[in-house]
Design a protein around this nucleic acid. Structure first.
Lengths: 202, 202
DNA sequence: GGAAAATTTGCATTTAGTGCAAAAATATCG
DNA sequence: CGATATTTTTGCACTAAATGCAAATTTTCC
């Protein structure tokens, strides 16, 4: 990876960090884009080359999408053959496989702290999961032999995205046990869903 | 209901309608708040007395919350005793019971058309369902004897909100059969969820 | 009709966001 | 290394968004 790419990543992260930092210190309302840019040592205009606005810098990129390989396995009916189990593996694969892709733990903690201080951001976080829904619906359709717009893939992807979002929200990411923590939480989440949706009477 | 109240509702609706109308005609980017206010015959400043910004006027209010009565029935374990069935009834009650509360059909159709033209709005719509999650979690906790922050009520409310959001998105609201349409769609949605989550092997 | 309360409006001001072209930094190739 | 091409950053000008405040207007209530 060349110098250019590295610098761009660095700038992006510096902006995100400065944004979160300042927002925690002063409160969201009292931080301007100018402040953030200044704190990251770039011009205001450059800020807008990286983010569409203040909140985008605060919230980050949303969950990474599964890769080609994971998708192929899923579509072909693997790895276990059980739809829900495989969906879980599929959705978590980019997080659990590629640890580099994730922001650093400390940054995540800060962001979490910020969101507790400024709950207005919660809906924004929710929104970042929307992109996921469509790509998952597509993979589901391919596996099930449905059309991508059919009820089944659309519904299942919506609910699966909600479950993953919930998993991410709950798992604490403490210390080095991050990935294990996520896996455990997602197991619990899907197990509870199955239990709750199993009809109680028949 | 006094004149004041009626006028406020009228203004609000006029602004929403003007916003949606203009956005469909010219595209979201080419509509300013000034345009919207002018089309609704109020000052720009008044627009901001009603909405925090352009997009809020476009998207509207989000789903109405269940009333006291519906909550009581749900918490006490009714009406059917089956958790998922009752959750469905509970969440749809404000829509199906009180028809006045809903915007007119034609307005909903317009909004839907707009969202197809401007998909950037989809995440915003998603976000309006967040408020629902917390109040539903609270009711669920009360029914199940959990604390509101426990895993079970939080997870179930998240997933239930996603299912309702999906139901709303899918039901067409065509003609007079609106409510029936919603009911049928939600039955289908929950039935499919149960089927999909039932373990396939054991 | 007229005082009290709520709503609308104009105005001033700050911040957000975008287009464009020049300048600076980085990459590429001989 | 050094010249040139490509990408990124920056400054500047400009439009639109958003908010506070106080005066003016409208509605309510007696």
């Amino acid at each position: 990876m060349g110098l250019r790419e590295r610098k761009k990543r660095a700038t992006r992260r510096a902006l995100q960090r400065a944004a979160v930092q300042l927002a925690i210190e002063r409160g969201l309302e009292h931080v301007t884009v100018d402040d953030i840019a200044a704190a990251a040592d770039v011009s205001t205009r450059t800020f807008f080359n990286y983010f569409a606005g203040k909140e985008d810098a605060l919230i980050g990129d949303g969950p990474p999408s599964p890769g080609e390989e994971a998708r192929r396995v899923f579509v072909e009916g693997g790895p276990t053959g059980d739809l829900v189990e495989d969906l879980k593996v599929f959705l978590l694969s980019p997080i659990l496989d590629d640890q580099e892709a994730l922001p650093l733990l400390e940054d995540l903690r800060q962001r979490k702290r910020l969101i507790e201080l400024e709950p207005q951001l919660i809906p924004r976080v929710m929104a970042t999961f929307h992109e996921m829904e469509q790509s998952v619906a597509e993979a589901l359709a391919a596996r099930l032999g449905d059309k991508p717009d059919d009820l089944r893939p659309q519904l299942l992807s919506t609910v699966a995205a909600a479950a993953i979002r919930f998993t991410m929200k709950r798992s604490t990411w403490s210390g080095q046990e991050g990935p294990e923590n996520i896996r455990a939480m997602s197991d619990e989440v899907f197990a509870m869903l199955r239990r709750a949706l199993a009809r109680e009477d028949p």
